[in-house]
């Protein structure tokens, strides 16, 4: 009886361990290559850890490449996108959740429709629209595009969180003397913090790792974001894996920090969203 339980527990843990190892191995490999000196990269190709580790790639990336600029650009773009999208999605999601208005179902339909097209189809029209406005090759242009593409899903996400909060609460607040907006701000928003954190995190990551539009809309180094920057390590004849991986590891840092910051709300939020109703 208890032996059976022990065996089951061990098997369970082993399965989780295998899964975690499987998921994290690429990240480990990223780290490993980033600290492998170029001279050893090919000679010690499949060793789990190089015989000599060095931070030379990091030093190079930080001092002799444009990567600091790329990071800064990515941070600006991702953070702005995340904040703007979350504000818009919170307001729109609230309206979707609480109000009956004319054309609501059309709007929901349109929002869904935008999610159905492959992005590649939209690159040319986007470029055509942005270029006369001087918004190609600019971070602002990128933020606008990212906001446009992330708002629909984020709206649905926020709506599901608002749906989980009883309407009686704002009714009570309004009777207590609040306007609807005050009730939204003081009663509903604080209760939606997990949802807001989840939305922020989701949008930030999406913007942080976006390559296609960044590649097509940006040409100068000035406004290059980090995913595009990574490609600069690929030259015609070789790929500088060490530097590329070092840059990759550095790029993980802001995302990790961000998630560390919102993690508390996120876990709460994902489960709250899951069992709402």
């Amino acid at each position: 009886m208890t032996r059976k339980r022990i065996v089951l527990t061990v098997l369970h843990r082993l399965a989780i361990l295998a899964y975690v190892a499987f998921a994290l191995f690429p990240l480990f490999w990223l780290l490993k290559v980033s600290v492998t000196p170029t001279s050893l990269l090919y000679t010690e190709g499949i060793r789990l850890w190089p015989s000599r580790a060095s931070l030379e790639h990091y030093a190079f990336v930080l001092t002799h490449s444009s990567f600091p600029t790329f990071f800064l650009n990515s941070t600006i773009v991702s953070a702005s996108t995340a904040v703007i999208v979350t504000i818009v999605a919170a307001l729109a999601g609230y309206a979707m959740s609480r109000f009956v208005f004319r054309g609501k179902y059309w709007i929901v339909g349109l929002l869904l429709l935008t999610q159905m097209f492959p992005l590649v189809m939209l690159i040319a029209p986007m470029f055509k629209m942005l270029s006369p406005l001087g918004l190609t090759n600019s971070l602002t242009g990128l933020v606008i595009v990212y906001v446009a593409f992330n708002v629909p899903f984020a709206t649905f996400l926020m709506q599901s969180f608002f749906d989980g909060i009883p309407k009686d609460l704002e009714d009570a607040a309004m009777i207590d003397g609040a306007t609807r907006f005050t009730a939204f701000r003081q009663i509903i928003l604080p209760l939606t913090l997990p949802g807001i954190a989840a939305t922020l995190g989701f949008v930030f990551t999406a913007a942080w790792s976006e390559l296609l539009f960044a590649l097509m809309l940006i040409s100068g180094n000035q406004a290059t974001t980090f995913p595009v920057g990574l490609l600069s390590f690929v030259s015609k004849f070789s790929v500088d894996f060490g530097q590329m991986m070092a840059a990759g590891v550095l790029a993980l840092i802001p995302a990790c920090l961000f998630f560390l910051l919102i993690q508390r709300y996120l876990v709460q939020g994902l489960t709250a969203g899951a069992v709402k109703g």
């Binding site: 009883p166 009686d168 009714d171 009777i175 207590d176 306007t179």
Partner: peptide
């Protein structure tokens, strides 16, 4: 509602 100066007790209590 805020200007009607009434108070209401809800079935769900609706506590914040």
């Amino acid at each position: 509602p805020k200007d009607r100066d009434i108070a209401m007790v809800f079935q769900s209590y609706a506590l914040y």
